[in-house]
Amino acid sequence: MKKTLNLVLAAVTTMGLTFSAQADDYITLASTTSTQNSGLFDSILPKFEEATGIEVRVVAVGTGQAFELARRGDADSLLVHDTAGEKRFVENGFATERADVMYNDFVLIGPKDDPAKIRKAESAAEAFSAIAEAEAPFASRGDDSGTNRAELRLWENAGVEPGGSWYRELGSGMGPTLNTAAGMDAYVMSDRATWVAFENRQNLELLFSGDKVLFNQYGSLLLSEEKHPHLKHDLAAQWHNWLLSEEGQQAIADFKVDGQQLFFPNAQ
């Protein structure tokens, strides 16, 4: 009995040590699933770590949840794609600085046979209204993420109030939404990066892209020292500045999937 207890204690201690014996030089970055799932971080983080010795721990969630993590002081840095939301975040005093880092674009995905005929659409607005008119199934993220917010703005542009049985709010991340869309042959809007890296396409194809309104800007934010003095602001600033530096911008441009560049650096 006593022996067992000693073993247990030994085990707990060992594991406790493993848990705590981790680098102190790291920051927690709240970011979006699109950057994570595409593999961008796997490509650029080693370069940053090599340059600075700082490990970046990515918590990939929807943009809404990423803002919430930063608001509560649970992340040292924020890289998201909702420019309007980011600006509000600065205005509300949670961040001191916001900078453009890169962009990719949103693309409209749908079943090969394209029942709403959006392949021929001239603009994103036309494509969106065609889907609504045809009442073709459309899978929406419905999770208050950057992509979801952009999608809602695009419906508004097209003068459509999405609703009805054809419009399906999934409340999921980009990947699960694509999986579901593939399962029910629905239209879906995705960021290009996630789409290119996505493997379970089944009957889905890229049907429409290229309109400027589908531009998907990513921004990096420096969080407020005043609101959350405990955060690793120095390290986070190094990360922020590296992203905007020539080196960081080049690293982003160098990330390719199947020879295709997915993110386009555009820091000023």
Binding site: T33, V59, G173, G175, L178, A197, F198, E199
Partner: peptide, 24 residues
């Protein structure tokens, strides 16, 4: 845990991640 690569990624969260990448 946050499913952080190399820090808090466990079997189940890795499965969720791969599923969301469509890598079924």
């Amino acid at each position: 845990g946050g499913n952080i690569d190399g820090v808090t990624r466990v079997m189940t969260t890795a499965i969720v991640l791969e599923t969301s990448k469509g890598a079924l």
